[in-house]
Amino acid sequence: MRSYLISRLLGMIPTLAVISVIVFVVIQLPPGDIVTSTLDRLQAQGVDATEEYVQNLRARYNLDKPLVLQYFYWAGNLLTGDMGYSHLYSRPVNELLWERLGYTLSITVSALMFMWIVALPLGIYSAIRQYSIGDYIMTSVALVGVATPPFLVALVFMHIGFEWFGVSTGGLFSPEYEDAPWSLGRVADLLAHIWLPMIIVGLGSAAFTMRILRANLLDELNKPYVVTARAKGVGPAKLILKYPVRIAINPFISTIGFVLPSLISGEAIVSLVMGLPTIGPLLLTALLNQDMFLAGSLLMWLAILTVVGILLSDILLAWLDPRIRYE
């Protein structure tokens, strides 16, 4: 188990290195850079930048150096925790990022929890009562859930909230707590608001994983080891949970790895629609304005979160299934 852990942890390093190269290339791809967009802005204000000013600007962002060197400057700073300076917001990226990253993480992790809590019992029920009315209802609802994009669900929820209950469902805080310092009241206010994005972001994945669990469990239910356990006198509830479910949740856990990125991207769109102060809208703004340091750091962080998520699901799998552990 320990060697497995170490090898997986070491494996993360090249993965992230490759991702950082890709991220760097992607943010370099569109024509222009911070300097050109700054000049555009200055020009729009009627200010003519001198050649010297432009040179200084290029030098400050290392833009006068070859691309490869630029990458190493960028990556090296990332490693030391310096994510650069957001030209757009005129603030260090670090400052901008932490709070939003926190919100993104809380929404994503709570959506993941929501997904589990909903999908697990419903998937089990659907499988052991296959072709019952309850099963038909749930699989049909789940099909709709899988097919509906989260932003649409968000719009529907907001519409219902506004039209029927007269409440504005956007944002993560009530106006009075919006810019207040952290306090118990603010935490409570956050909790009172976060459940809606949590449900909206988690709904599609919950439906998806429920269907996976149902299919897996149906495969396992009639396996000989279940019959053996039954013949041994194991009670009905324990029989289902200890034997087939235990095997059927294996793929269920490994889906965390690929559900996580979709949760994060789903969260981005939902946040735009609902006006949530998370990473998604910030990333979009940064990309639109070619704020390279900000966009690069954000993309890098999303990549790190995803890689860590996959790592966690792999560790969980190894812990649950000895067959993986012993390889």
Binding site: P224, Y225, T228
Partner: peptide, 18 residues
């Protein structure tokens, strides 16, 4: 399992792997 118990045909699959 208590009064009557059973040995099955397939020992490879009659036990849970986990």
């Amino acid at each position: 399992g208590g009064l009557i118990s059973m040995v099955f045909q397939e020992p490879m699959t009659a036990l849970s792997p986990v």
